[in-house]
Design a protein around this nucleic acid. Structure first.
Lengths: 116, 116
DNA sequence: CGATCGTATCGATGATCGTCGATACGCACC
DNA sequence: GGTGCGTATCGACGATCATCGATACGATCG
């Protein structure tokens, strides 16, 4: 018996300006925790594929256009997109019956910046 | 050039020049696979901490200086360093009784470059 | 030699993850 | 309201992972 649905906060720190670079200064524990969570979102080939589809598109992409190219079931795609959204790498907007995703380039920039 | 003549372990592809950018073009499956494996090496707070210790140091760091600041046991540190080495992010050299690690900045640059 | 020291591997365990079928939810249109 | 459609959640399963004690490996030194 698990606890009730945990309403965990999306990102524990500012998603854009977080984290000191890996290469120039030593990380403290909480920075490492947040950074690791972000990289974990990229540590799956299906998520990278989904992200590349969304990020390479001009503007938004409909969720319905992600299932077939990823080769995974609809629940699996939804699961992975949620991880990308929770990591702040992708934004989600529901309009009518469809859900539209868009990349958050600032977040990718922040991760790139952490890799120095 | 700059391809090392050392006996590189089994890295599935050229560790420096791999993978097309996420943001501008769509990934194919094998690229996504390799990239995901690299990011998986960064998807753990202990490994990020270890990497930051090695990368922020001038030159090399002795393995014996990694156990205490990471707060993990020696086998665990050895395990994580192996993952970082296998990912090409860190080089390993045994001299006498000690093992010395050094960052591979080209590899970090390659990962940064993939995040576009 | 044999003793000692630093590091890697092994084995086991508990936790987390990726996956998909079934199903619930929410919106639109009749 | 009822029906149909797109998406999210649930439940379960097998696979992978992080962790550490015990131990093996290998180099140094007496």
């Amino acid at each position: 018996m698990a606890s009730s649905t945990k309403t965990l906060r999306k990102i524990q720190a500012d998603p854009i300006a977080c984290c000191s670079p890996v290469r120039t200064s030593m990380l403290d524990g909480s920075d490492a925790q947040i950074l690791a969570q972000s990289f974990a979102a990229l540590a799956d080939p299906i998520r990278l594929t989904l992200l590349s589809i969304v990020a390479s598109a001009k503007g938004e992409v409909c969720a319905c256009d992600l299932v077939e190219p990823s080769g995974r079931s609809q629940p699996t795609v939804s699961h992975h997109m949620k991880i990308l959204v929770d990591a702040g790498l992708v934004s989600r907007e529901k309009r009518g019956l469809w859900v539209w995703y868009a990349a958050v380039p600032e977040r990718l920039d922040a991760l790139r910046n952490a890799l120095r």
